[in-house]
């Protein structure tokens, strides 16, 4: 079980990973993240909502309403600033990995 404190810093990255490809809605993101972590990480509903809300506030994503799939849903799409932020997080992770590796036996 991954401690939620540890992973908290990277929930944004997980969400943005999928938004880099195309806009999406909350449940789809939740499902994709779960699948990609191979069930090793279960993103709580409130955690996901907090992250999306935060990303929107920061200007990294924009939300819009869409009914084309039959049901009215709130979709999120990546903005330029979000793209940059995502790249930053990727570089940050590379750095963290390099640093911490040296302390793992």
């Amino acid at each position: 079980m991954i401690s939620s404190d540890m992973i908290r810093g990277y929930v944004d990255t997980m969400i943005l990973y999928f938004l880099m490809d195309r806009p999406s809605y909350a449940y789809e993101l939740s499902r994709q993240i779960r699948q990609r972590t191979q069930e090793k990480y279960i993103l709580k509903e409130t955690t996901l909502y907090s992250a999306l809300s935060r990303l929107e506030q920061a200007g990294y994503v924009a939300s819009f309403s869409d009914e084309s799939s039959g049901k009215r849903r709130t979709y999120y799409r990546l903005l330029e600033a979000g793209r940059d932020y995502y790249e930053e997080k990727c570089r940050e992770w590379e750095l963290i990995k390099q640093v911490i590796e040296r302390f793992i036996r």
């Binding site: 809605y25 909350a26 449940y27 789809e28 939740s30 499902r31 509903e45 409130t46 996901l48 909502y49 999306l52 809300s53 849903r73 709130t74």
Partner: peptide
């Protein structure tokens, strides 16, 4: 807004 969004998420998950 929070309530609506969370409901959407939960209902989608339930359906799935």
């Amino acid at each position: 807004r929070v309530k609506t969004q969370l409901s959407e998420l939960m209902e989608d998950k339930y359906q799935a």
